[in-house]
Amino acid sequence: MLFYLIGGWIFTFKFSLEDAVKELRPQLCYQCMKCSSGCTAAKVVNNYRPHEIVALVKAGYSDELINSDVIWACSVCLKCVEYCPQRVSPFEVVMALRNESIARGRVPPKSFVEMAKSVLKVGHIQEPMYIMSKDFEEVSRMELGLPEMPKPKDFEKFKQHVLLVGFEKLKEVIRV
C-alpha cells in the first residue's frame, strides 16, 4: 500500500467498502423502488434490481453481492441517482461493490478484463480496428486519412500510475 504525504495529510488511493458505505448511507433507503422502476438494466436483466442491492447492503449481505456477477449488469444510465428521494444513489453503491470485488481479487466479466488489459498495454480500452464499410471494404484510420491515435508518451510512468490508483490487484489476477 502506498501513502502520499501531502501537507501533513495522508492520502491513500486504497479503497475501502466500509468508508464507501459510511459515505453513501444506504441505511436511508426506504425501499420506494423508484430506482428499479426506471432502471435500464432491470428491464432486460432478470435478477438485477437496484433497490434489492441497496437492501442487501443495508442488511449486511455485501459479501454475497461482491461474490456475485450481478453487480456488473449496471448500464451507467444514472437514472437511479436522479430518481432517489433519499439521495442514496444505488449507482454509487454498485460501483463501490465492484471496486471491492476487484480489491478482493475477483475476476470481472471477460470484456472488462479485455479493456483493463488494453489500458495496461496501450493506454486505451481498445486499439483502432479495421471497419467493414457498406461496400465491403476493410478500412483503417490510415486509409481514411485520419491521423494516428495518440498514446501516453511516457508509457512506463503512466502504467505505474494506473497500477497505483487501483489496477494492482487486477493485474495480479489476470496476469498481464
Binding site: 460501483m95 471496486n99 472488462f112 486505451h124 501516453p152 490508483v165 489496477f167
Partner: peptide, 20 residues
C-alpha cells in the same frame, strides 16, 4: 500528441482511476 483513456468503463475497477 499524447492521450489516454478517460476511464468511464473502468469506474468499476477503480474509483480513482478516472480522476487520474
Amino acid at each position: 500528441k499524447d492521450m489516454n483513456c478517460c476511464g468511464v468503463p473502468m469506474k468499476g475497477i477503480s474509483k480513482f482511476y478516472p480522476y487520474y
